[in-house]
Design a protein around this nucleic acid. Structure first.
Lengths: 225, 225
DNA sequence: TCAAAAGTGTTAGATTTACACCCATGA
DNA sequence: TCATGGGTGTAAATCTAACACTTTTGA
């Protein structure tokens, strides 16, 4: 191999995943106690190293699949974190990614096997290295994104009630919204389709179930919330 | 040194700088013909490698200072670019940063010494590796940012006319805006202060010069454009 | 029968957009 | 004197935000 840059130094490059889920009205992230040195036992994001024959995006995808069993989760880069001593052992530069998952799609046995837990975003413990900052930034980026792109549906079941959708927005934005105004805006988006099905798990009366029609969205991608 | 991750592979990590300037009504970026192998002679962003004892942000700052002579330019991360073969020679993962500079502050001799040129953002040549994509993303991020944060003033001289400011917005957003509506919005922002000075370089009649009062902004940071 | 969540419209106020003419000056 | 860019206000339309009561049903 030709060595062009031999005078420069190399670093380990890793990916860290901020996996968001929505359950029981709360936005949650998947974190676990670190099982390797350095930092063993501290709360940490799930991550992995970038291999020599995969792109950084591929490494993130692989890591997400390893953890969740799901092949192509929705995933976007948050950014690179590169303090000199962010890893106490070696020079490691990490690229953070956030991902969205419908918690029902996630096999709970697999979750336990990897020793990770769903933790409420408002109740995060102290965390390893800069992982808390990664989560903070991921949340900020996701909050902006969810206003203009229909990514909320990736956090919900295929069929969902309008109250669930509203609770999700409230959890992401950290503030409540008016029910009538919210529903008015939803009605204007024709790709959020009402079904004839009723969900009775949330109330005695029952609520209509809706679903997101992606191909209708692609034809008229006007999403604003 | 303890080696925790010896089973994993390392990569070179570099920074690439998308330096925006505004001149004669056009948004420009600073690019040059690459002076090293591989890719010698291709149009390229200015970049550098991340050293073992500096953070990635510090490397970007150092690189920007090397090129412009200015110590702490406004600079924000665009993201990590990590395709396996983005560099034809070795595995190099690059973190892109955009920076804003007032072109008058940039010593033209220093510019020539580094062999870089101001190129209109709408007339970019084909570029080395993924540099064009880096510019595209930097521009998108900057365009969003400039709507809600007073970063435009970093591209303008200390004193500027409202027409200059308007032209800057138009160049960034790629579309024209109504003069009266634009000025109405500016008037509402008290931290954009009118001076008694007149600039006669742009018209016979002359136009009032304004300046951005940062401490007034900090007291009432309401910026919307 | 009552508690709990679902569902539904209107209005005032704020914001946004469209639009056209006079002014000052140097060439 | 005229071409050029500087400077100014109003009105219609749209969007946003505030607000309260009826329905259904299981316990």
């Amino acid at each position: 191999m030709t060595t062009y840059y031999s005078e420069y130094s190399k670093a380990y490059v890793s990916v860290d995943c901020i996996i968001f889920g929505f359950d029981e009205g709360h936005l949650r992230v998947l974190i676990g106690k670190r099982q390797m040195d350095p930092g063993r036992g501290e709360w940490s994001l799930y991550g992995g190293f970038v291999g020599p024959n995969e792109s950084v995006d591929e490494a993130a995808n692989r890591t997400l699949q390893e953890l969740t069993g799901i092949r192509h989760l929705y995933m976007r880069q948050v950014g690179a974190f590169g303090s000199v001593d962010r890893d106490p052992g070696e020079r490691v530069i990490s690229i953070a990614y956030y991902a969205l998952i419908n918690v029902n799609d996630y096999d709970d046995e697999l979750r336990k096997k990897h020793g990770v837990e769903w933790v409420n975003i408002t109740q995060l413990p102290p965390m390893y290295s800069d992982h808390r900052e990664m989560i903070r930034q991921a949340r900020r980026i996701m909050r902006e994104k969810i206003k203009t792109e229909p990514i909320s549906f990736r956090l919900l079941p295929e069929l969902f009630t309008l109250t669930q959708l509203q609770r999700l927005y409230e959890a992401v934005n950290g503030e409540q919204v008016d029910k009538r105004n919210f529903r008015k805006r939803i009605k204007e988006m024709e790709f959020i389709e009402k079904t004839e099905l009723i969900d009775k798990s949330g109330s005695k009366r029952g609520a209509y179930l809706y679903h997101f029609n992606r191909s209708a969205y692609n034809e008229d991608p006007n999403f604003k919330l």
